[in-house]
Design a binder for these strands. Structure first.
Lengths: 159, 159
DNA sequence: ATAATAAAGGTCAAAGAAGGTCAAAGGTGG
DNA sequence: CCACCTTTGACCTTCTTTGACCTTTATTAT
């Protein structure tokens, strides 16, 4: 049997297919259409359109508020996911971190002006605390920066 | 759906572009044109044309009153130097750090794809150590990233 | 000159319009 | 029966719009 969650999911997938991977919805409107609680929409977005399923969701509150959903292109997506899940562990030396940035640059996922910033952030001098803490913090910083790339990778396409 | 605020914002941006960064408006006239309360114009100016978005607003009341809006031209080099030397101290909260990144973005010194990376690097979650060390490390990371921008802008000059 | 009046723009708080969170209750498959 | 989804609702936060009232400046009438 299909749940409301499934119905809403399918509806969003359909919209996405017809709109080239980027849509704009109103939470209340959608909830109205499916006769459910508005917060159900959030549930669907959290469980079915999460970042590791390859989607990006952004929203604004207040008058003129909206929810935007993007489908992240797969190539960049899988490289970034692999780096986040596998290559960056709990701790990371400067050398290892630099290799990862280089890999992103080589793959064309980032530009030089982005690589420079990332290099700067992971330098020893940027993290003035002792080992082993420094390497742990470095892993954390890099992971977050790579996550940011994941979030970004859809919107860059259109430019 | 776009709000009245967005419409007015776009209208002002258009005027600014056509008038070389300096315009002169009448509050009531503009409110009339968009059929809104005059105070809505103030709201737009406060939220969209604030000083840290790179705009300057001056006005005069009474007969022959006016509102003037200027776009402040920025010199990347001096902005970066000021941020390194003055704005980033020994320690920096996430809020303060975010303001600095926003300022760079608004000034057009960095692009969105760079801002996203910088933003990610300075998040609490990126620096998993306790206060007050976290704020000290954050200051250090941001300073190094801004230095990288400085280096980059010098190189670009020579091209 | 002065005092009234008209013509701007400014402030602030309340109401309205979204979306977000979280925990409790309700189902369902093993 | 238990663990794991779904569904719902009460309450929260953020952003926008409106309106009543205030201040400043210019003009006009005594």
């Amino acid at each position: 049997m299909s749940t409301i969650t499934d119905l809403i999911t399918n509806h969003i997938l359909l919209l996405l297919r017809h709109a080239d991977g980027e849509i704009n919805i109103q939470r209340n409107e959608l909830a109205e259409k499916f006769s459910c609680a508005p917060s159900q929409i959030n549930y669907v977005l959290e469980t079915r359109f999460s970042i590791d399923k390859g989607y990006l969701v952004e929203s604004k509150r207040g008058g003129g508020g909206y929810i935007r959903i993007f489908k992240i292109p797969v190539d960049a997506h899988s490289l970034l996911m692999e780096i986040i899940d596998v290559q960056i562990g709990r701790s990371l030396s400067q050398i290892e971190a630099e290799k990862i940035v280089q890999r992103l640059l080589d793959a064309g996922v980032i530009k030089v002006n982005q690589a420079n910033i990332m290099y700067a952030a992971i330098q020893r001098e940027s993290i003035p605390i002792n080992l082993p803490w420094r390497d742990i913090v470095r892993a954390s910083i890099l992971r977050n920066m790579v996550r940011a790339l994941l979030h970004q990778s859809k919107k860059e396409e259109g430019e």
